[in-house]
Design a protein around this nucleic acid. Structure first.
Length: 98
DNA sequence: AAGCTGACGATGC
DNA sequence: CGCATCGCCAGCT
């Protein structure tokens, strides 16, 4: 079903300054339990235009495998609020899905 | 065709 | 509150 392709389009719709969690994307795809599959698709993120750095974990923590702080830097550069914990403040940047 | 792996999520301890 | 385990789906070997 080209799951990853669908994920790409969804992530591509994420506006700058906002973030979405894997579970959130999976939910939009119709598979709320496919968070792993979503992450798998992101892992193959070879497609430019897909801001995979805007996709964070459900708790707002940045992806550990992305970089030692690279993702955080990109999000902060886009105006994404970060907590002192080093996590994305989803309460202020959580993407509605519009 | 079957099994293993993986950028996750939630629950249990 | 922090760490560990189980369950989920899709893709790859």
């Amino acid at each position: 079903m080209n799951f990853y392709e669908r994920v790409y389009e969804l992530v591509r719709r994420i506006p700058a300054g906002k973030c979405a969690s894997y579970g959130q994307l999976a939910l939009m795809l119709g598979n709320p339990r496919a968070s792993r599959a979503v992450g798998y698709a992101m892992r193959a993120c070879r497609t430019p235009g897909v801001p995979c750095h805007r996709v964070v974990r459900a708790d707002g923590s940045t992806t550990p495998a992305f970089g030692p702080g690279v993702q955080r830097a990109m999000l902060e550069a886009e105006g994404v609020p970060f907590t002192a914990d080093g996590r994305v403040e989803l309460g202020g940047c959580r993407w509605d899905g519009a």
